[in-house]
Amino acid sequence: MSSSDFREANVEGVPGAAGGGHFAGLPHGSHVSADPILDLAEFQLLEDQLDNPRIARDFARDFVRLWEARHQTLRTAVEHGDVPAALDAILSLRTSSAMVGGVRLAGLAGQMEEHINNGDLGQARPLLHELAECGESTIQELKESYVLKNSTPEPDPTG
């Protein structure tokens, strides 16, 4: 299965997710903080669509492994005023968050995406801290849920 297959997963109904709603006109913090950190029903959709829970769990494990790099890429792009790089980073973060069931993180990413699309990185910058905290909470809940709790990590090829 190619990585593009993951992008085709249905994320309808996840605020700000690909194919879902959008954030036009919503003020910062609007309804996103009411969303759960993790919605396992969304993750179960991914499992169903891939017809293989192991592949979905591998995707979630990769999400956790790549979190720091994704967030740092976004932070660097925003701080350097690089709108195309910031947009690329936030789209990746929003979509992957929605796919693992991280609805609050996907919602925050949707808000940030709106600011980036408007070329207003000054409005996006304050969301970086909130996004970081929510990302860490999402990772923690993934690790505590059935998604990754009993998951065997991939062996480290470096030793």
Rank of each mutant, 00 (worst) to 15 (best):
E144C: 14
E114H: 08
L131E: 12
I116L: 08
C134Q: 13
Y146G: 15
L127G: 04
G135M: 00
G110F: 04
E130K: 08
L127M: 00
L148D: 03
Y146S: 12
H115M: 10
P126G: 04
Q123Y: 01
Q140F: 08
N150V: 07
S137V: 06
A132I: 04
Q140V: 06
A132R: 11
G119Y: 08
S145T: 02
Q111K: 07
L127V: 02
H115D: 07
L148H: 14
L121M: 00
E114W: 05
N118Q: 14
I139L: 10
H129C: 08
E114G: 04
S137F: 02
S137Q: 13
M112A: 10
T138F: 03
C134E: 15
Q140R: 13
L121I: 00
M112Y: 04
E114V: 03
A124H: 02
L121Q: 06
N117W: 00
N117G: 09
E141Y: 09
M112H: 07
N118V: 02
L128P: 12
E130A: 14
I116H: 12
E133V: 15
M112K: 08
T138S: 00
L131D: 13
C134D: 13
S137K: 08
G119Q: 09
Y146P: 10
T138R: 06
A132G: 12
L131G: 12
Q111W: 01
L142M: 09
G135E: 09
E133W: 13
G135C: 04
L121S: 06
N117S: 07
P126C: 04
C134T: 15
A132H: 13
S145C: 05
E130S: 14
L121P: 11
S151F: 11
T138L: 05
A124T: 02
H115L: 08
P126R: 06
E114I: 03
E144M: 14
Y146H: 14
H129E: 13
E136W: 00
Y146F: 12
E113T: 06
T138G: 03
K149E: 00
G135V: 00
L127T: 05
H115W: 07
C134F: 07
G110C: 10
T138I: 01
I116K: 10
L142N: 05
I139D: 07
E144T: 14
A124S: 02
V147I: 12
C134S: 14
G135Y: 05
P126Y: 00
I139K: 12
